[in-house]
Write a protein that binds this DNA or RNA. Structure first.
Length: 430
RNA sequence: GGAGAGAUGGCUGAGCGGCUGAAAGCGGCGGUCUCGAAAACCGUUAGUCCGGCACCCCCGGGCUCGGGGGUUCAAAUCCCCCUCUCUCCGCCA
């Protein structure tokens, strides 16, 4: 959420920022609600001040035994109360309208973010590794996985519905190996590991920006809880309504959770395989940082995510999202895209964002500096995938496949897997 | 799931419907003392919104004692609903 005063004082800047994002917003409703709210507050608070002082004098009159004057004053206050009640109702409406406006407004892109209207305008920052040249016909991971007996899409449909996945034998073990490898690597680099609920309440999902605007993208329960679309939601909300000690910043957190997404509106896209499913595993990183260092933190998160891909020896590239492709809460985002032979292209496997104070304001997460009497300020929150596990498995299967349909296990995963290859012998795969 | 108890400032914990945004203690901050520190003593110490001043300070006012509603001229205090915590019972991986 943007600061109301900032939006009010910098309306044309905000309008320009929204235009760069491709977000329709003229600010008229905001301005109306904002000024209406302040006018109502001034009026109603003057009346409340009058009520308070009158009530006090009534007490004095009663004590002095001047009951007829007290009764007269009571009648007057009753009349004032009727006006207050009416104005408070109007004020509540104005505040609702204002909140609606502010909650629907995305973050302002950082000045360094490249201009653009779609993913076509994203900028490649760097490349790592070389896509492998196959001297045989490379298979897609959905064919490989099924042939190896480690991925079962058909039974997953029976168990749930389409866009769910069932992993068996070495497939299940590979999933687990990746999760452990990623968490071990991050915790060795100073990230604190958390295990958290996968259902969150409305306040929690509002704080990170999923609600109210993206309610259709979330799975929900009948009693008002939501399945989390990413661990970011929980890791950020750990400190909701808290004041952190500046000396403790930055905080580096990580956690593994399943992630649930309705994928409403993505019908027909990435319909095969592990790329776009309703439930997938992800190891997530979240940082809480001082405003003045949050962009350094962002580079650190990207490096931590890149480290995983490098250890797995998967070719990838880093791109910087343009203004038009930026996520709702983000001021600046780098995506990591892994080479995916079946697409003949790079495919997103991690997204690292600096949300500046946008989520912190919604979540009311502040910090107090060590200087005496310093006012609590909003922290900056950052998040990055480290990495999406399902897509990582897909990339490993495709990039490490052999002519006979077997898959070599990346070196760093072998201690977790206990095998060096996932072979074509179905029995050996569990 | 059943029965009971509770929720007050950074923490502990008082609080006859009006003089209580809140006693006291702890903690924090500032000071006296000291070469310095500790101890002792003195002072100070909630958040947020609106307005005066475009910021901070300061000044005036509103709101906030888990959340919401009600009674009343006036609610931390009385009534109702909800949430959460604790104790006991039941159930359970």
């Amino acid at each position: 959420m943007l600061d109301e005063r900032y939006v009010r004082d910098n309306l044309s800047l905000v309008q320009e920022a929204m235009r760069q994002r491709g977000h329709e917003w003229d600010g008229a409703d905001f301005t109306r609600a904002s000024s209406e709210r302040r006018e109502l507050i001034s009026t109603v608070e003057a009346l409340k001040a009058r009520r308070n002082s009158s009530s006090q004098s009534i007490g004095a009159l009663i004590k002095a035994g001047r009951s007829e004057q007290a009764e007269q004053a009571k009648a007057e206050v009753r009349a004032v109360n009727e006006q207050i009640e009416d104005l408070d109702r109007q004020l509540a409406h104005a505040e609702e309208a204002l909140a609606r406006e502010l909650l629907a407004l995305p973050n302002i892109p950082d000045a360094s973010v490249p201009m653009g209207t779609s993913e076509n305008d994203n900028v490649e920052v760097r490349l790592w590794g070389m896509p492998r040249q196959f001297d045989f016909i490379a298979k897609a991971h959905w064919d490989l996985g099924v042939a190896l007996g480690i991925i079962d899409f058909e039974r997953a449909v029976k168990l749930a519905k389409s866009r769910f996945v069932l992993l068996g034998g070495l497939g299940a073990r590979l999933e687990r190996a990746l999760i452990h490898f990623m968490l071990d690597t991050h915790t060795n680099h100073g990230f604190k590991e958390w295990w958290c609920p996968v259902l969150g309440n409305a306040d929690t999902l509002t704080a990170t920006g999923q609600l109210p605007k993206f309610a259709d993208d979330q799975f929900k329960t009948t009693d008002g809880l939501y399945l989390i679309p990413t661990a970011e939601v929980m890791l950020v909300n750990i400190h909701r309504d808290e004041v952190l000690d500046a000396a403790d910043l930055p905080l580096h957190y990580c956690g593994f959770t399943p992630c649930f997404r309705e994928e409403a509106g993505s019908a027909g896209r990435d319909t095969r395989g592990l790329i776009r499913v309703h439930q997938f595993d992800k190891v997530e990183m979240v940082s809480f940082a001082l405003p003045q260092t949050s962009y350094e933190e962002l580079e650190g998160l990207v490096a931590a995510a890149e480290n995983i891909l490098q250890m797995l020896e998967l070719p990838y590239r880093v791109i910087e999202l343009c203004t038009g492709d930026l996520g709702f809460s983000s001021a600046k985002t780098y995506d990591l895209e892994v080479w995916m032979p079946s697409y003949g292209d790079y495919k997103e496997i991690s997204s690292c964002s600096n949300c500046t104070d946008f989520q912190a304001r919604r979540a009311n997460i502040r910090y107090r500096s060590t200087e005496a009497n310093a006012r609590a300020q909003f922290v900056h929150t950052l998040n990055g995938s480290g990495l999406a596990v399902g897509r990582c498995m897909a990339a490993i299967l495709e990039n490490y496949q052999q002519p006979d349909g077997s898959v070599i296990v990346p070196e760093v995963l072998r201690p977790y897997m206990g095998v060096e290859t996932i072979g074509p012998d179905l029995k050996a795969n569990g």
